[in-house]
């Protein structure tokens, strides 16, 4: 799509964004994994061919809700992440809608070859839940802090990748991928994070949502970093900087239109993700901008290093994943803005 065409379309669409919706407020804290668990139960109640495979840590990735409710459609796979993924493929080729969830480090990194051939190339209708995303896992340390899934999943043809920002969106996203045909990966976290989206906040696979309007800079974020972006944007507003906040809940297929619109209208971009900045959200946004509308961009995320043990909050601070870090990135990109 030509840039001019995108911008023309964007002018008419700007009027109808969610950006004029009431300001988002924090409504307690809850981990996104609970949204995944509840979403599975909704799907199980709706469809008799939704099945769940357990990878031993069902109480941790919340597949336990489904197991308790639908024991006849829950199958323990032991600790066999790779083969559980293959079994899921076989179930999907038989008309089932299998979910398999484990920690993201294993769901993506250990399973890359299984996902490549038996899910993506096979176009098998399997849903992978990757828990313990990011360094907010906390005390378990680097081995269990998945920081690479977006890069791995994003490169696979046929895959859909969603990264919900809070508990409620995780529930909506889980239901959405269950009802969407094709191999999907959903990334969710272990620790409690702010809940702020509402029942009426739209979620659609492949569609970014503008959570706050603004024209000086656009912060494109995913996962719990969306809340940090909102906090940063509200503070910046008081300081005279109008920052747009875009919730990029689908990393693949990425909403190119929203990115080009934001670049065209704000002329400066910051991305924020609890993931390696390489080949994750920052990488995905950069690819679009490099092709469509080169724009100054700063990345907030983990910068080519492993995580470590600690309390989630202190880790987020140490690795530069707070609203303050987003504000710094905004100041930096504004200086580069033409």
């Amino acid at each position: 799509m030509a840039v001019a065409e995108v911008l023309n379309r964007s002018i008419s669409q700007t009027l109808s964004t969610n950006g004029s919706a009431p300001r988002f407020e924090m409504n307690g804290k809850k981990a996104t994994r609970f949204g995944f668990g509840e979403g599975l139960v909704v799907l199980g109640e709706k469809y008799d061919n939704v099945v769940v495979l357990g990878g031993d840590i069902t109480g941790s990735v919340m597949t336990s809700y489904f197991k308790d409710k639908f024991p006849e459609r829950f199958f323990s796979m032991g600790i066999t992440e790779a083969t559980a993924t293959l079994v899921a493929s076989g179930l999907a080729l038989s008309g089932m809608i299998p979910f398999f969830a484990t920690y993201g480090a294993f769901a993506s990194c250990r399973n890359t070859d299984m996902i490549r051939i038996s899910l993506a190339y096979n176009d098998a209708n399997v849903k992978i839940g990757g828990g313990h995303a990011g360094i907010s896992v906390g005390e378990d340390g680097a081995t269990h802090q998945a920081l690479e899934e977006m890069a791995i999943i994003r490169v696979m043809p046929n895959m859909t990748l969603v990264v919900p920002c809070d508990f409620l969106e995780a529930k909506k996203a889980t239901i959405a991928i269950g009802e969407h045909y094709g191999p999907c990966y959903i990334r969710f976290g272990r620790s409690d994070v702010p809940s702020f989206t509402r029942e009426d906040t739209p979620f659609e696979i492949g569609k970014a949502q503008t959570f706050k309007d603004g024209n000086d800079v656009a912060i494109i974020a995913c996962g719990p970093m969306v809340w940090e972006a909102l906090v940063a944007a509200y503070e910046l507003e008081a300081e005279g900087v109008s920052a747009r906040v875009i919730n990029m809940a689908t990393i693949k297929p990425i909403d190119r239109l929203a990115i080009v619109r934001a670049a065209g209208e704000c002329k400066a971009i910051v991305t924020a993700e609890e993931h390696q900045v390489t080949a994750g959200l920052g990488g995905a946004v950069s690819e679009v901008l490099a092709q469509e509308l080169p724009t100054p961009i700063e990345f907030v995320g983990v910068k080519d290093t492993f995580g470590g043990s600690g309390k989630p909050d202190e880790l987020m601070k140490y690795f530069g994943l707070t609203s303050a870090d987003i504000k710094s990135a905004v100041q930096k990109v504004l200086k580069r803005k033409q």
Binding site: A82, L86, V87, G90, L91, M114, S118
Partner: peptide
């Protein structure tokens, strides 16, 4: 593994 998934189904 895929065949096992089919048989399980």
């Amino acid at each position: 593994g895929i065949a096992v998934g089919m048989a399980l189904s």
